[in-house]
Structure formats: structure tokens, C-alpha cells
Design a protein around this nucleic acid. Structure first.
Lengths: 223, 223
DNA sequence: CTTGACACAGAACGTATGTTCGTGTATTAT
DNA sequence: ATAATACACGAACATACGTTCTGTGTCAAG
């Protein structure tokens, strides 16, 4: 028969992990006995027992050379959001529809870390995704080739929001300020010298997301 | 009588600070004796002596309840750099000259947290500062009102770098791509449809810093 | 020459800390 | 039933750790 030892995270595992993460965020990693106190464990050997398991699970790292040398392995600093870059955005190409579940689990090799303090209030990380701009078709929106735009997944928008819209009839994707008018939608470029695009209400218009941030990294080694 | 300014930041202060920051970044804060070893101090009392001073300077925090409970005060997370916003940048205004020492200690109430992974290689945090753009005079550089530009303090630039330059003769500050040509400097706007500015080599030109990142936060509550 | 502040070393001491060992108790597989 | 396993407790121990006290040399002011 199968060994039933499917490493389940018991309540004690979870309590210990939470405490280690909390202390790690504070900068003061805990001692064995402090962990025991936090998890209602009276014996230090029991804490060692669980710490060994958590290490084997790959959830924490320890350094036997130092005391209090325990830290969570994953980079889940509470001050950071890792936002996946789902793909490129360019005029004439449909952009990916973000799947929150996939975005959370999927390969986040390509992603941007964004400080929470830069994001408005308490954005849900799962609702955010990033796109890398290809080409200079968005230049009228003050967004250049190579820029990373961070969007909040939404299907609706309020007036004044900068949104990523997909216009099937025109086979075009753009970033514009969104205004709903009487008989039409007005897509206003960020550059005030450029004229807006008007989309009649009978024309299909898909809002993919709302831009919450633009990040431009400049190469230090430019030609 | 004595002004308790940071008069003494001796080599030992610096060594200890660097070591504490390094260990804090690694997640494993050091013990007194480890600090002593790193700073070539044989006695633990001397380390205590310096730790007390650094605490009074506000550079580190300690918690007497725990061992190894020492951390730099200014860092929130090991993955973040807190970059001070030294002031606004606008055409016609001189921008502040950053003082690395002051930037390290000074009031960093106004600052931006930037994920280290977004910065090129191993930028020294001390060399970075941020400016908040006022007005749309930089619009030809694809930089809008309210944007935050992060610069690396430097007095020289290579061709292709985007730099903040101060032109005393024109009483003007701009962000442009920098090119050194035979008899002049060419300041190229980011927007390819705009024409460059030429500055003769006899005209004064002060490079304040090199732009390494641009961050634009969009309001969720736009009119 | 004193005086005192300063920078540093060394040792002592009480507590903190991680590991190890022995033991007990359910649960489960054979 | 027996053995194996997972989970839990407490004690013991060697070392790590922070604090504190004493002492030493330097240097500038009085």
C-alpha cells in the first residue's frame, strides 16, 4: 500500500511558517524557543522536529553555523508583488486574456517585482498583470518601446481611466484614456496634441484592463 | 555644546554598518562577536560601544529582548531600495545636487521603494535619487507631469544615456538623450519626431545624473 | 603636569540557544 | 497482537550570546 505520509501542512506547520515569515519581515528571526512559544509547543525538540520537516519541504532555509538562522525560502516579501508579464502588447495584436489562476501559479520567470507602496491602496495581486510594449505605436500615450505597463484586470472602465482596449473591427489594440459619451466612446491619447479616436456604441470594444503603472527601464549600456 | 551631528562616521562605523546591512539583506542578522570579527574588533565591548553610537545616530535599531536583533532602520525589505525623492524637476529650475552622505542619513520621508530586481545589476543605493516631474515640459522625452524619474548621480555621461542636464546659459533643465559630437553636444529628445538641441562645447552644460528608470503612477480615481 | 574624554582590549558572568537523548502515546500496517 | 511510525514532552549539556566591569593608551584642554 501507499505510504499515507503525504506531507500535509498541519496546523502546527502553518503556525510555525507564519511566525517565521512574520519575524523575517520584521528583520528579527526567531529562536527555537520563541517559535515553540508562538506555536504552543513546550519542547524545543518538537520545534526542531518540525523545522527539519519544513526544511525538507523546501519551505525554509537554515544555517547551522548561526543561531536564529532561519528564513523562508520563497521571495514572498510582504512588501513586494511579483507581477507576471503575460506577453507583449502591440498594435494589431490581440493581447492575452489574463487568467488569475494561471497567472498565480504559472511560470513567473518573466515578471516584475513592484513595491506595494507604489501601488494604489490594497490591490489584489491576482488581478494585476503586466505587458511589455513592442514598437512605438503607443507613443501617443507617452509609452515607448520596451516599457512595461501594469494593468488591473477589468472589463469595465470609468471615465478618465487609461485602459487597454481591443477593437476587433479595426484589428487594433491601444492604450488610451477612456471616456464614455452619449453615442460613442472617446479614446483620448495621452499626448494632448493628438486627436482622439471615436468608437460608436455599435462597434465592438473590449476592455482588457486598466493601466495602473508604467515602468520604463533605461539601458545603462546604450549605443 | 557639541552638536550631535554625524560628525564621526569613522571607518569602523562604516564597516559595521555595511556588515549589518549585508547580513540583513541575507536574512541572518549577526551577533556581537560576528560584527567584531567583520570589523577587526577583538573585544565585544567595543562592538557594543559602536552599536550604541549607531543607535543614537538613528542608523540601526536593536531589540534588547532578542539576541542578534539588530537591523538598519532605513530598509524595509531586503529586496527593496528606498530612493529619496530630492525634489521636483521642471524646465527653468535648477535641480538639487544630491549629497550621497545626506541621502543616506537624511529624511527619507519622501521616497520611492523600488524592487532591486528592477534596477540594473548592483546599483549602489547611495548613488540613486529620484525627482518628481512638474509640468509637461519633458513631454518630448516621453515623460509626463507627475512621473518619477530615478537617476544615478554622475557628472559624466556616455553617448546614448538619458541624462538630466542643466543649461545655465538658457536657464533650462531637461531630460534628453546625450550624444557627444565633434564640436558640440547633441541633446536628442526621446520622441523621434522632435528635433534635437545642439549645445556648443563653449556653452556651459552640467550633467546632474543619468536616468535609470521612469515610474508613472496612474490615479485610479481620475476625472 | 594633571584631567578627562575617547577609543579599545580583555575577562567574567548569567542567560540564551541549538542539539541530543530518553521516554511516552496514540495511530496504522502487517 | 506486534511492529513500525508519527507526534509530543522534558531534561541535560556544551556552546553562543549580550552585558558589564576593569584596565590601558592616546590626545587635547586646562
Amino acid at each position: 500500500m501507499m505510504v499515507r505520509t503525504r506531507k500535509g501542512m498541519t496546523e502546527r506547520h502553518q503556525k510555525i511558517m507564519d511566525f517565521i515569515v512574520q519575524r523575517y519581515d520584521e528583520g528579527f528571526p526567531p529562536s527555537i524557543r520563541e517559535i515553540g512559544e508562538a506555536a504552543d509547543i513546550s519542547s524545543t525538540s518538537v520545534v526542531t522536529y518540525y523545522l527539519k520537516q519544513l526544511t525538507e519541504m523546501g519551505l525554509i532555509e537554515r544555517d547551522p553555523k548561526f543561531s536564529r538562522a532561519v528564513r523562508p525560502t520563497h521571495v514572498n516579501s510582504k512588501d513586494l508583488f511579483r507581477i507576471p508579464i503575460l506577453g507583449p502588447i502591440a498594435a494589431g495584436l490581440p493581447i492575452l486574456v489574463p487568467d488569475p489562476q494561471k497567472a498565480y501559479i504559472g511560470d513567473e520567470i518573466n515578471g516584475v517585482d513592484v513595491a506595494r507602496s507604489l501601488l494604489p491602496e490594497r490591490e489584489k495581486a491576482r488581478e494585476l498583470f503586466a505587458l511589455k510594449v513592442q514598437g512605438d505605436s503607443m507613443i501617443d500615450a507617452m509609452i515607448n518601446d520596451g516599457d512595461i505597463v501594469i494593468l488591473k484586470s477589468t472589463l469595465e472602465a470609468r471615465n478618465g481611466d487609461m485602459v487597454a482596449v481591443w477593437l476587433p473591427a479595426r484589428d487594433e489594440t491601444t492604450l488610451k484614456y477612456f471616456y464614455k459619451e452619449k453615442e460613442r466612446y472617446r479614446l483620448q491619447p495621452a499626448n494632448p496634441t493628438m486627436k482622439p479616436i471615436f468608437v460608436g456604441k455599435d462597434e465592438p470594444l473590449e476592455i482588457k484592463g486598466k493601466v495602473v503603472m508604467v515602468i520604463r527601464k533605461l539601458e545603462t549600456t546604450a549605443a
